[in-house]
C-alpha cells in the first residue's frame, strides 16, 4: 500500500510539473500588453523593452521557467498586474477561499445527503413511481440549462420565502439559496450514479447467491449491494468534492458571492497574465489531487486493485 501511495504521489508531482510548464509556456504566447497595468499605448518600443527586461521577461526561456518554479516552491505566485496592480496573488486569492470553501462544503453535505438516499430509493423501487419521479428530476436538472432554474429560484423562490435575492454576509438566510443552487445538479449526479451502480449490482450472480443462501433482502442490500455500488463512485467522488469547494463560477457571480469562482473569469477578461497563470495552476493542482485521492479511495475499497504489483488479479 505504502509503495503504491508513494508511486502515485511521484506520478502526481510529475504531472504537476508538466502542467505548470505547459501553463507557463502558453502564457508566454499571450500579448505583452497583459504585463502593463496602464500606459501601454503611450510607451515607445524602448520603454516597453526596458519594462519587460526589468520584469525578467526578456531572459532566456529556461531561466524564466527556473524563476517561475523557484517562485512556486517559495509560495510566491507572482504579483497581479492589472486586476489589482502590484498586489501579491496569494493576497488576492486568500480572502476568497473561505467563501468558496463554506459554500462548497454546504453544497456537498446537501448533495450527498439528498442524492445518495434518492439514488438508493430509485434503485430499490426500480421501474416504479418513485424511480420515475427521481428520473424526471434528474432529466429536468441535467437537460434544462442551469441558468433557467437558477434564475427561477433567485427571482420567485426568494420572493415567495421572503429571503434576500443576493448574498449578504450578515444575513445567514441569504446563504440558503446559493447553497441549494449549487447542490441541485450534484444531487442529480449522485442519485444517477448510485441508482445505476446499485441496479448493476442487483443483477450480479453473487447477489442471487446471497438471496439463495437465505439472507434477508435488507441484509443483502446493506452487506452486499451498497458497498459494492460505492466502489465505482469512489474514484470520482474526491475530484467532484474538490471541484465543488473550489467555487462555482455561475452561482457565485449570480448571488454576488466574493468567492474564487468569479476570479478566473475576471482575470481572463482583463488579461492579467500572472493572475491567470496562478489560478490555472491552482485549479490543475486541485484536479490532480482529486484524481490522486480518487485512485487511493478506490484502492482502499476494492481489494482487487493490486497495489504495486503487476499481472495478477483481473
Amino acid at each position: 500500500m505504502l509503495k503504491y501511495v508513494v508511486k502515485r504521489i511521484l506520478q502526481s508531482m510529475a504531472t504537476l510539473v508538466v502542467v505548470a510548464t505547459v501553463v507557463f509556456l502558453l502564457l508566454r504566447l499571450m500579448p505583452e500588453e497583459g504585463y502593463f497595468a496602464e500606459g501601454y499605448d503611450k510607451m515607445d518600443e524602448a520603454q516597453i523593452e526596458a519594462a519587460l527586461t526589468e520584469m525578467g521577461l526578456r531572459d532566456p526561456l529556461p531561466v524564466q521557467l527556473g524563476n517561475f518554479f523557484n517562485g512556486i516552491l517559495h509560495g510566491d505566485l507572482g504579483k497581479s498586474i492589472i486586476f489589482r496592480p502590484k498586489v501579491p496573488i496569494t493576497k488576492i486569492i486568500g480572502p476568497k477561499i473561505p467563501y468558496s470553501l463554506y459554500f462548497g462544503l454546504a453544497s456537498i453535505a446537501i448533495s450527498l445527503g439528498v442524492g445518495i438516499p434518492l439514488g438508493m430509493v430509485m434503485a430499490r423501487f426500480k421501474g416504479k413511481f418513485l424511480d420515475n419521479l427521481g428520473s424526471a428530476y434528474v432529466v429536468l436538472i441535467k437537460a434544462v440549462p442551469a441558468a433557467v432554474y437558477f434564475l427561477f429560484l433567485q427571482l420567485y423562490v426568494s420572493d415567495a420565502l421572503k429571503i434576500p435575492m443576493l448574498f449578504n454576509e450578515k444575513k445567514p438566510v441569504s446563504w440558503i439559496l446559493p447553497a441549494v443552487c449549487m447542490s441541485l445538479s450534484s444531487i442529480a449526479t449522485y442519485a444517477m450514479w448510485i441508482r445505476r451502480y446499485m441496479v448493476d449490482e442487483l443483477n450480479k450472480d453473487y447477489i442471487k447467491l446471497a438471496r439463495a443462501k437465505g439472507l434477508k433482502n435488507s441484509l443483502v442490500m446493506s452487506r452486499h449491494v451498497i458497498r459494492n455500488a460505492f466502489v465505482p463512485m469512489a474514484q470520482q467522488l474526491p475530484s467532484n468534492i474538490l471541484m465543488t469547494i473550489s467555487g462555482s463560477i455561475y452561482v457565485e457571480s449570480l448571488f454576488s458571492i466574493p468567492g474564487m469562482g468569479g476570479l478566473l473569469v475576471s482575470a481572463i477578461q482583463r488579461q492579467d497574465n500572472t493572475l491567470v497563470q496562478a489560478l490555472v495552476l491552482i485549479y490543475s493542482c486541485i484536479g490532480i489531487l482529486g484524481l490522486f485521492l480518487g485512485d487511493l479511495l478506490m484502492a482502499l475499497c476494492d481489494p482487487r486493485i493490486k497495489l504495486g504489483k503487476k499481472g495478477s488479479g483481473r
Partner: peptide, 18 residues
C-alpha cells in the same frame, strides 16, 4: 438456505469480489 440451497453455474461471478 435452511432447507434448500443452491450452487450456481459460474463460480467466477458467484462470489462477492469485495
Amino acid at each position: 438456505g435452511k432447507e434448500i440451497a443452491m450452487v450456481f453455474q459460474d463460480p467466477m461471478t458467484s462470489l462477492n469480489p469485495l
